[in-house]
Design a binder for these strands. Sequence first.
RNA 1: GGCCCCAUAGUCUAGUGGCCUAGGACAUCAGGUUCUCAUCCUGAAGACCCGGAUUCGAAUUCCGGUGGGGUCACCA
Length: 456
Amino acid sequence: MVVRTRIAPSPTGQDLHVGNIYTGLLNYAYAKKHNGQFIIRVEDTDRERYVEGSEERILTSLKKFGLNYDEGPDIGGNFAPYRQSERLEIYTNYAKELISKGHAYYCFCTKERLDELRKKQTENGEKTRYDRFCLNNVEDSDTRIKNGEKHVVRLKVPDDEKIKFNDLIRGEIVIDSIELDDQVLLKSDGFPTYHLGVVIDDHLMEISHIIRAEEWISSTPKHVLLYRYFGWEEPVFAHLPLLRNSDHSKLSKRKNPVWASWYIENGYLPEAMINFLALLGWSHPEEKEIFSLDEFIKFFDLKDVHPAGPIFDLTKLEWMNGVYIREVLTEDDLKERLFIFYRNDVKVSHYIENSRILNLAKTRMNTLLEFKNLVVKSENAATPNEILKQDLKIELEKISKDEWHANKIFSVFKNLAEKHKIKMPAIYEIFTGKKQGLPLPDFLEAIGRDESFNRI
RNA sequence: GGCCCCAUAGUCUAGUGGCCUAGGACAUCAGGUUCUCAUCCUGAAGACCCGGAUUCGAAUUCCGGUGGGGUCACCA
């Protein structure tokens, strides 16, 4: 069997969501492991929440994180179009097929009636669900539609049937159809709901494995029903654990940075992020913590995914990002990343070229963002001790340009510290505006005599 | 609340009946290296949700609780 996986983001947020990176990563890895294809389909069926530019940012971020897709809205593919808003006719036709088979029906109920119904059911302590008014009472639907009356198409869910499906991660899941409402499939604006769109497109695009988040488990029976009514073969389902906030609730932007761009802007490396995410719900057979995407693909299997929802905790990501900066990336790589990161910051760029500084800095930064703080003098420095400062100048001036070496500089500092009965950090502050940072004599040697004096 | 999913340290996890006096990593703490801060090295502390059952033996199987999460839209 050809393995084809997909993620189906909605352009309703400002960027790619970390949850999508996570799901995307596992979909990508699974497809690649089996020499299959990984596809992006944009599910832009909610025009109320549609965010302009979102799709473009999502696609860009996906590439930044190395999740290169084989088919998608911007690159096309054999199953185009990959944007649901461009496939409306397909959904309408299939909805009609369902109606003619008696598995779906038109509904003309207004939002007001539905709200009223729901309110009443809640008051009576009943399950809130559609009462099938239109199924039972409407006979002239064709003429009403011809007259331009607003309508939706609803799925006719069996009254009482245990619907089963197998989940690769969780085993068999059984849900009784009485738990299911007569789901709207086609909205009154002609757009499909998620449930209709996803089933039709996954089938038409020959998706073999549906790997998505756990939150979809309870609606999977609806999808199973649709596959059955269309007479299509079911794909393999695998529901991934949901990433959580530290209070264990579903990961949200209120409690965590969730946008891909945030991580890039804060100096996290995509490969570190990928490595970190890979370790959520899965572990390397040799208990390795640091490994590449290729290695992940080699060892990954959906069956090994731990079903419990992990807390998305930046602490470990920060450490891991530091490991990538100081151990995984080559010096040239790191330089390049820093140049890109600081491309608009002239104050920083010349420090990046200085290999000595770079090597001093990389042991004390976990993110690219921290580099600047290490090399650029802090603006809000405390007012230095003037006497010490003058003394420092006098002593340093005795060192010629040719002799400007760390050991010379250090001995000046040492003598000065003894004379003034102070500790190193006090001298530190004069040059950097901070009490701690890069080893000062080495740093001063690296930036040179002239700049060292400029900093005093 | 109904239904569904889940349950090893603060966090990510290993563990599929005896190798577990439960292993690794992050974080924490202590010590060492050191011109600050780090890096690095060494060490410490810290967990099988509870109760039954099965078994010679259970973190591991079963049942019941409890706890957490998800879902119940013309949102995905």
